[in-house]
């Protein structure tokens, strides 16, 4: 059974169809890429999956459960985590606090135990701090843990953004252009992190990316969107041979 199933999904803004009867599925444990020209509806697709947009038609199933009309924060509890394209970190909070916030749904303490910092709250903070420190080690951001994220460079902020989503211990991790605007060294680091997240943590990863080298190397399956329509779905080699995809996005030279 696929982990995430998108069926016949349409999304309209007024008369404009951002997504038009899109269907695909994502298997558990794979790296899945969503590609297409700018404005094709890739981010809209992720927004439907994470609950920021509500589709006008169709359904989304996660782990066998219907989530099409579920509230955004409830989907997070199920294990859908998201890193945004335009960094959406909590700028006045430190790296550590941002990551601790990522564990919000895994924690329980409320106002009273938090305010008294007694028993549960304190135990919980320490316990989850350990999990967060693992991620800080993994992403190699030890030196920045007590800095407010607003002060960090763009590349590091992107890394913290991924870390915050990862702190959730998600079943599926949605990464919206994690490598956009990075130099080649930072891109390589990020690609390495994606592979390690996939292999060591066994997390299913959904990737939106414009760097075809990265996409073709990493992905198990790829879906191609163009003007809100699905024009290709398959393994990287199938996609590279697909005439519709070549025409709309990849271009002629790649087939040579």
């Amino acid at each position: 059974m696929p982990l995430l199933e998108v069926e016949n999904l349409s999304l309209h803004f007024g008369g404009v169809a951002a997504l038009n009867e899109v269907s695909f599925h994502i298997e558990e444990g794979e790296i899945f890429s969503l590609i297409g020209p700018n404005g094709a509806g890739k981010t809209s697709m992720l927004n439907c999956i994470s609950g920021l947009y509500h589709p006008s038609q169709g359904s989304i199933k996660f782990d066998g459960r219907e989530i099409t009309h579920m509230k955004s924060y409830k989907r997070t509890e199920l294990g859908i985590a998201r890193a945004f394209q335009n960094i959406e970190l909590f700028k006045n909070m430190t790296v550590l606090e941002n990551l601790m916030l990522g564990r919000h749904v895994r924690m329980k303490s409320g106002v009273l135990s938090g305010g008294f910092y007694w028993g549960l709250a304190q135990k919980e903070e320490i316990e989850h701090r350990k999990a967060v420190e693992d991620i800080i080690d993994f992403l190699e951001i030890e030196h920045y843990r007590d800095q407010p994220v607003g002060m960090l460079s763009y590349g590091l902020q992107k890394r913290v953004e991924v870390g915050r989503a990862l702190a959730l211990d998600p079943k599926i991790l949605l990464l919206d252009e994690p490598m956009a605007g990075m130099n080649s060294e930072e891109k390589e680091d990020m690609a390495r992190f994606v592979i390690e997240i996939h292999e060591e943590r066994k997390t299913t990863v959904v990737l939106i990316e414009h760097d075809m080298g990265v996409v073709m190397d990493l992905s198990d399956h790829i879906a191609v969107l163009d003007f809100g329509k699905l024009i290709g779905f398959g393994t990287p080699s199938e996609i590279q041979q697909n005439p519709k995809v070549i025409e709309a996005y990849l271009g002629e030279e790649q087939t040579g």
Binding site: G51, S72, Y73, F90, M93, E97, L101, M107, E125
Partner: peptide
């Protein structure tokens, strides 16, 4: 602790807070 951090997150970026 957890609740206070959530308050600050709501202040800084409520959209991201909901997705988290």
């Amino acid at each position: 602790s957890r609740t206070g951090r959530a308050f600050v997150a709501v202040r800084d970026r409520d959209l991201a807070a909901e997705v988290m």
